[in-house]
Design a protein around this nucleic acid. Structure first.
Lengths: 138, 138
DNA sequence: CTGTATCCTGCCGGATACTG
DNA sequence: CAGTATCCGGCAGGATACAG
């Protein structure tokens, strides 16, 4: 079933008292951070912050995601307690995905970042031009 | 040189007036978001927010990153105008990396997310146990 | 509609060696 | 120290087919 099993070896983290320091390899928080900030995780959480959505609504909103990756992403986020899956046993089946309270707090911080990046894209694009121009004339 | 050249095809984004909507494929902001939130990008920005660092200091701080990936990550972030590279022509060479003002604003939002995730890891770990337990008994 | 199972490929990224 | 060049294995992830 192609899991994203975390499999922290034995030690949760380093011997420090910063219990979940994401900077150390083999700390479970790093994996969660990757689930959250990853290519599809960030967009999925962002989309769900706006409203709860069904599977195919999500697929359309997160432009470019495949069925497989969306399914995988949702499972990982559900497992981490950030997304709640609400299945209605109707026919045809209807499944809604919504953020948990914890997921909402994560998504808020994520969206703050996302919106900031979108807002400042002109500056980023300028920086790229300067950088590429400087490179070109070397 | 194994670039991370963005190469937006022609259209910057979708035909919408949301100029840089990260949710649409082939919008440059999505690539920048990936540079920022990616596996190594997020940790690199997080580390540099605390203090400016030299190449090998960064390598040690961002536990697990290879020379190649750190180099690549730094180039991408520098190109996007988030990181400034200060090389001193001494011998042995000394190069310091520091955030630009824009990079600092991005890193602040990123660290808000990172710290929140670290802080809530116990809840995440609990959620995982419940999820896995429920799966196991199916 | 909401997914899972399978196959297959590209490229991510680690290891290693080398340069200034 | 601060990187670049090269090789190459593994896995992310897309396409497709199928199931409930």
């Amino acid at each position: 079933m192609d899991e994203i099993t975390t499999a922290a070896p034995t030690a949760p983290c380093d011997g420090t008292d910063l219990a979940f320091d994401v900077f150390s390899r083999s700390c479970p928080s790093r994996r969660t951070l990757e689930n959250v900030t990853g290519r599809w995780g960030s967009l999925t959480l962002g989309a769900l912050r706006e409203s709860s959505l069904r599977f195919n609504e999500l697929r359309r909103r997160v432009d470019g995601v495949s069925e497989k990756m969306l399914s995988q992403t949702l499972h990982a986020l559900e497992r981490d307690g950030l997304v709640h899956r609400e299945a209605q046993p109707t026919n045809p089946p209807r499944v809604d995905y919504e953020l948990t309270p914890l997921g909402r707090e994560v998504a808020d911080r994520l969206l703050s970042l996302i919106h900031f990046v979108e807002e400042r894209m002109p500056a980023v694009l300028d920086a790229r031009q300067s950088y590429d121009a400087a490179r070109g004339t070397l």
